[in-house]
Amino acid sequence: MKNVYLSLLIMCLTVYAIRLLPFLIFRKEITNRWVRSFLYYVPYVTLAVMTFPAILTATGSVACGAAALIAGLIAAVVSGDLFIVAITCCAAVFLTGLVL
């Protein structure tokens, strides 16, 4: 395909369709207990898998990534506030970068 705009349109529509289909398929509440439990657990597993070990290599320095992980875990346990935890991780990377 030579046309960039047409290529983009095709790919944007494909990605949108992937996101849309489940919303149209599951219009009603699912009654099956296993399926409901599965869908309830999906966010926790997905986000945990995406966070670790990716956070370790996100900055190009494993030490900085590990500092972000530990600082983030502590902040999440102590405060739990989204913004505070995110900033704590950023600060941990910045400070570790200064030391190294």
Partner: peptide
């Protein structure tokens, strides 16, 4: 600057932790 990109790019992971850790507690 590299330090800014490095620092900002972990914000998303921090957010994930803020979502999953409090219910885990």
């Amino acid at each position: 600057p590299a330090w800014a990109v490095n620092a900002l790019s972990v914000a998303l992971y921090g957010m994930f932790l803020a979502i999953i850790i409090p219910p885990a507690k």
